[in-house]
């Protein structure tokens, strides 16, 4: 299985402008966040991407994607009917192929040489099935993420067979239904904002659309797909930065800077800031 296509959602009412924020990359260049994300996916081997945007936002995004314009299809989500609906808008684009799914307001930084997207694509291509990137996250953060429960794949350090997926569960429910042996107490495998999905998920989303009313979430269809086919969770070696949460942009920019050649300069700046702040 080779993955050539990516879908990036940026149509949510709270995230329409976030991917357009400029940020200094690890190499010191100032770019819109969306461009950084696109740099990573195309560098990892993706050939084409669909960008799901809110009505009237196409031009702004077109201007922000920089050199990747030719590889991108812009799809407007007519109404904000949920994350699942936004993904389903790319059904024609993905056309029965497996695809990489990302959210537009997250940035990723790998712990090693291989980028986060590359790690995920390699895993999905090797395992030949749907894979969701996850990260062990303490329970206090559960209100922000989807989370999975499952068992280690024998012989693998970072792969899990998903048994259950819940969207923003309470720890009360998570303790009962998202049991994953081997994790530290009070930690759960939470979504990293990055998945490789198959056409089966698109079909399930399509079926769910009929009864979804004005909100079609993604998680129930992911959970259904995981029950009917092989769906793995991959504990990625990297960090995600949600630029939509308070100080999220600042954290992302600092993380980029500290991972790049300007590290000392930024550290000095931080020390000065601490010394002079009230």
């Amino acid at each position: 299985m080779k993955i050539h296509k990516a879908v990036i959602t940026a149509a949510g009412p709270d995230q329409r402008h976030l991917p357009l924020q400029t940020i200094v990359s690890t190499s010191g260049e100032t770019k819109p966040a969306i461009q950084l994300l696109l740099d990573e996916i195309f560098a990892a081997g993706i050939r084409n991407a669909a960008l799901i945007v809110a009505p009237g936002q196409t031009d702004a995004f077109r201007a922000a994607v920089g050199p990747h314009l030719s590889q991108i299809e812009f799809i407007e989500q007519p109404e904000p009917l949920g994350y699942g609906h936004a993904v389903l808008c790319a059904q024609d684009f993905t056309d029965e192929e497996a695809f990489l799914l990302l959210v537009g307001d997250h940035l990723y930084l790998s712990n090693g040489e291989t980028s986060c997207v590359r790690q995920l694509l390699e895993t999905a291509e090797r395992e030949e099935c749907a894979v969701s990137a996850v990260q062990a996250t303490r329970e206090g953060k559960l209100p922000y993420y989807g989370a999975v429960g499952g068992k280690h794949i024998p012989g693998s350090r970072d792969l899990y067979q998903i048994e259950n997926i819940l969207e923003k569960p309470t720890p009360t429910v998570a303790e009962q239904e998202l049991i994953t042996p081997g994790l530290r107490q009070g930690h759960y495998l939470c979504f990293f904002g990055m998945h490789v999905l198959t056409a089966a998920t698109m079909r399930l989303l399509g079926e769910a659309l009929e009864t979804s009313g004005n909100n079609l979430p993604l998680t129930p269809s992911l959970a259904a797909a995981a029950k009917s086919g092989r769906h793995l969770a991959f504990e990625i070696s990297g960090q995600r930065y949600n630029i939509g949460e308070p100080y999220g942009l600042l954290r992302a920019e600092l993380a980029m800077a500290l991972a790049g050649p300007q590290r000392d300069e930024v550290l000095t700046m931080l020390v000065e800031l601490m010394a002079t702040s009230r």
């Binding site: 303490r138 206090g140 009962q176």
Partner: peptide, 18 residues
Amino acid sequence: RGNQWMFRMGHPAEHPLR
């Protein structure tokens, strides 16, 4: 199961319920 987290939570910022 379901009760354990309540004994671990020690800071308001960690409150997982809404």
